[in-house]
């Protein structure tokens, strides 16, 4: 199984290509987690993400390899954004290719659960529209 992990400050909203190495794939499941317009009941304009990058990448790779023992997949790609992520934009994009959809859905669900328990990435702070504008004009 091929695993690609990337942490980036850049937008990941553009359309991502299908896997090139998923020969034999009958399913390609694509998931995006986007920033909601409210956090803890307050209206926000963006979230700032922080990561311990080397460990986050290693931990994601380890989790995927472990899950693949139960859910055999062909290809997994994870892109997680760090820094300021405006509302409506993707903070994470996960693509999973497998021979059949059941394995791809299962690995994806398991990965997202484990990500939120073990991968050292944090929502550092929520920004209001005013704070986001001030940040952009600096």
């Amino acid at each position: 199984m091929e695993i690609k992990i990337q942490l980036t400050n850049a937008s990941i909203c553009e359309r991502l290509p299908a896997p090139t190495s998923g020969v034999g794939a009958g399913a390609w499941v694509d998931f995006r987690g986007v920033v909601r317009g409210e956090e803890n009941g307050a209206v926000i304009a963006a979230l700032e993400y922080e990561a311990y990058s080397p460990m986050a990448e290693m931990e994601m790779r380890r989790i995927i390899a472990e899950l693949a023992g139960d859910h055999h997949c062909l290809f997994v790609r994870v892109i997680h954004r760090v820094g300021i992520v405006p509302v409506g934009e993707a903070a994470i994009c996960v693509g999973v290719a497998a021979r059949h959809r059941a394995e791809a859905f299962a690995l994806l669900a398991g990965f997202m659960n484990r990500l939120k328990q073990d991968v050292p990435i944090w929502k550092r702070r929520a920004l209001t529209a005013t704070e986001l504008t001030e940040l952009k004009t600096k």
Binding site: Y52, A56, K116
Partner: peptide, 10 residues
Amino acid sequence: VALIPPVSGG
């Protein structure tokens, strides 16, 4: 050594 508080990625 890294001190890892509860994570909140995704």
